[in-house]
Write a protein that binds this DNA or RNA. Structure first.
Lengths: 134, 134
DNA sequence: TTTTACAGTATCCTTTTAGGTACTACGTAC
DNA sequence: GTACGTAGTACCTAAAAGGATACTGTAAAA
């Protein structure tokens, strides 16, 4: 059994956690949904919000989210082209999930140029700010 | 830039959603955490709860979760070996997130032997139960 | 007249993830 | 004396994800 997570879900139908994760899987889906929570965005607007994504990857992730029914793609037949991405009503239902993910990330994940680290808020909440480089 | 999601987080430090997802990434982490939410489990107990995982994969996912500090591994020097996995206090903080993921999966993801599908609860909530095979 | 913006495709290549199988050690049960 | 359960490790291969680069077409701006 050598299947990608999305196709494997049927093999653990008892786990709604994995079922949900399978839709958020893909490197940029989280950020994309995060940004679209605040409203419609055009392709290049999204691109500018994601520092390092390539066109290919952004297109791919957007298509997958669209295919799942989580967001809509509206093409305006003008030139230069105008394509708008927005959350569908189904996508909106993900907002509490995204917010839970964001809240936890804000509280416990600490990113630095060297990588990321997990820490309880109590592990020295008072000091570390002073140790940041100016 | 060709890095796994976990190592790439430093490139979008502004996105706590991806930061969190990077810790849940890996095909079995979601299920593992889901089961450990209810209490300590031994290696083979976990294995029996996951229908298709191989020893190699389970070990790998557990090690990654342990390294992140989300769960603990207690080895009892007896024979046959006894190793217990449990959530750490830090891991416990993930419970609301796991619950949000599980709730959304329960409400919107529908799994069948053919795959999985996303649907709003309103899309015919009354009928489909009758269409299930007995 | 060349450049820019837009929203992508197409092609190729590398990295990462996941799975398969076999093997370990020890003690107990059959 | 053979098999079983425990908790793994080692080695190899397949598949999927991700990335680099180049290319498309039109209209307006420089």
């Amino acid at each position: 059994m050598s299947l990608p997570r999305a196709k494997l879900v049927k093999n653990f139908p008892g786990c709604p956690v994995e079922a949900t994760l399978s839709y958020l899987d893909g490197k940029w889906k989280g950020v994309i949904l995060f940004h679209l929570m605040e409203g419609t965005l055009r392709f290049n607007e999204l691109r500018r919000k994601l520092p390092a994504v390539t066109q290919r990857m952004l297109t791919k992730q957007l298509r997958e989210l669209e295919e799942a029914g989580l967001l809509s793609r509206a093409v305006f037949p003008v030139v230069p082209p105008r394509v708008e991405y927005a959350m569908t009503p189904l996508g909106m239902t993900l907002k509490p999930v995204i917010r839970a993910l964001a809240a936890w990330g804000d509280d416990y994940v600490f990113c630095s140029p060297e990588g990321r680290e997990l820490r309880m808020a109590s592990d020295g909440l008072c000091a570390p700010v002073a140790t940041l480089q100016t």
